[in-house]
Computed example of a mutant assay.
Amino acid sequence: MVKYFCNNIDIRSTWDHVVSAFWQRYPNPFSTHVLTEDVVYREVTADHRLLSRRLLMKTNRLPRWAERLFPTGMSRFVYIVEDSIVDPVNRKLTTYTWNLNHTTLMSVEERCIFQDSVEQPTTTLLKREAWISSNVYGFSRPIQEFGLARFKSNQVKAMKGLEYALSNLQGETPQRLLRDTVKDASEKAKETAKSLASAASVPQKPQQYV
């Protein structure tokens, strides 16, 4: 059994600004649980799409009832892989994220699609989906319910964080911001890739999921 979540949001900002803010949303006061972010792969394809893979580390606070069931030495951090595809031709940003560790306890997969609104030129449409599952025998249902509640809370914070980044970009040129972001991230990716080259759990190239 898998818990499924889906919602649609109208972001009152142009797609260009939303994409620029997406890359610059951390750190922000609404996402203090996000500790680190690193670009591990980046490529511009022949059809001008930008493919990226990032590794994020977040805090992983367990509910009190779960702390009595799992080892005290269990890591309180969770590692997240984020794949993204920026399609400037069709003005579409697709992201797919999933957790690398604690997957037996709970697995959370999320897909977000940011798309230019045809009817409202100054609005970006966001469709967010999530699939939450657990393989803990006898406790999968309450764990999934907890995961769903936490996801709903975090996605509200995520939107506030994006809005915070958008407010910081007011008056800036989105095309320049995106270009500079890609340049800086490409340099950072080279450094990060060296340290992660031996990590078999982090593939070097994003999967083609769309």
Rank of each mutant, 00 (worst) to 15 (best):
V2E: 10
L35W: 13
S117F: 05
T14E: 13
E172K: 12
Q155M: 11
R91L: 03
K58L: 13
T45C: 08
N135H: 12
T72F: 12
V18F: 01
Q207L: 09
L51P: 06
A199Y: 15
C6S: 13
L196Y: 15
V182N: 03
N101E: 02
M159V: 07
A193D: 03
I80L: 14
E67C: 03
I9V: 12
E67P: 09
R150C: 04
W98S: 02
T104Q: 15
V89K: 12
P88N: 13
T103D: 01
W98M: 06
M106I: 11
K188I: 04
N154T: 05
S75P: 14
S117I: 02
Q115G: 10
T192S: 06
R91T: 05
T95I: 04
V39K: 01
N99W: 04
F114Y: 13
T59S: 15
R25Q: 04
R176Y: 08
K152N: 04
Q120C: 06
H48N: 15
V34K: 08
R111F: 01
V202Q: 07
R53Y: 03
I132F: 07
A46S: 06
I11D: 01
L169Y: 06
L100W: 12
Q204P: 05
L62Q: 02
P203F: 03
R64C: 03
L166G: 05
V118D: 15
N154H: 08
L69Y: 09
E163C: 08
V44S: 06
I132M: 08
I80Q: 12
W131M: 00
R42G: 02
Q170M: 01
K3R: 15
N101G: 04
V40S: 01
M74I: 11
V182A: 10
E110N: 10
L93C: 09
P27R: 11
V39F: 10
V81S: 04
K183H: 09
H17I: 04
T95P: 00
R49V: 02
T103Q: 14
A199V: 12
P206Y: 11
